[in-house]
Design a protein around this nucleic acid. Sequence first.
DNA 1: GTTGCCTTTGACGTGCGCGTCAGGGTTTAG
DNA 2: CTAAACCCTGACGCGCACGTCAAAGGCAAC
Lengths: 131, 131
Amino acid sequence: MRIGDAAAAAGTTPRALRFYEERGLLPPPARSTSGQRVYDLTDVIRIRAVRELLGLGLTIEDVRGFASRLDLFTETAKPRCSPAPAAPDGSAASPASAAVARRLAALDAEIDRLTRLRDRLAHAAGGGSAQ
Amino acid sequence: MRIGDAAAAAGTTPRALRFYEERGLLPPPARSTSGQRVYDLTDVIRIRAVRELLGLGLTIEDVRGFASRLDLFTETAKPRCSPAPAAPDGSAASPASAAVARRLAALDAEIDRLTRLRDRLAHAAGGGSAQ
DNA sequence: GTTGCCTTTGACGTGCGCGTCAGGGTTTAG
DNA sequence: CTAAACCCTGACGCGCACGTCAAAGGCAAC
C-alpha cells in the first residue's frame, strides 16, 4: 500500500507519516522503483502505536526515545499485561517508563498550575464556585 | 520615567510594554522631544493591571476587549468588591465578565482534558494511582 | 569630549505537531 | 491517450507572548 492508504488505515495523514519518519519515530519504509513509499500491515500497526502514544500526551522526543521497542506495544495488538514492566530494583529499565513517568509528572504539574489559575481567576471575578 | 524604569516598576520588560502598546492593551504614552516614551505612575498602575490579567490566563485579545475599562481594576488599587459586577438581568454587562467566563470555561475544559489524559497514561503504564 | 547604558523601529526566533502550498513526476480509470 | 488523482521533496505557516538581534540615535556622568 502507498502512503495515502497507510495513513488512512492508521487514521492520520500522509504528511504526518513523513513527519514521523523524518523525526525517527518510524523506520524508512520500502520504496517502489519510482521512489514512492510502500507500507505493509506491520507498518500500519507501528503507526497506530505511535499515534496512540502521541495521543496519550507523549512528545515526539519521548516516542523516539523508545521507537526501537515500539513492537513491544504492538505484539498481536493484544497485550493483556502492562507493555512496560518496571524493573524490580526501582530504576527505569526502559526509556519508555522513564518517559511515561516524566510525562505524568509534567501533566500533574500542569493540572496543578491550571487549577490554581482557575481558582485565582474565579476569585478575582467575584468568588466562583469550586469544581 | 522612561520605558526601562516603567517596565521594572511593573515587573516586566521594555519589549513587553511595546508589545502591549502595539496590541492596544496600553494607550500610546507621552513622548519626549527626541521621541522616547515617557510614562508616569498612572501608566505603571495600568501596566500592572494588564500583567495581572495576563497572569490570570486571559489572552491579549481578552484584555484588549476591556482595555478601555482597565481603570475599573485599578481604582486606588484597592477594590474591596468585585471589579466586574454582573448585570442583574443575567446578560454580560461588560466585556470583562464575558471574557472571564470564557476563560474559566476554557480552563475547566483544559483541566478536564489533561486529567483524563493523565488517567489514560497512568492506566496504559500499568495502573497508576489516582489523585 | 567621550564612554557606556538606554531607547528607537523593524524583523526574525521560540516550541509543537503537523497543515498547506509549489512545482514537479507516477499511477490509474475511462 | 488523457485527465484525474495520487506521490515526491522542500519550504513556509500557525498560535502565543514575548526574546533577541541589528543599526542607529539619546542621555547622563566624568
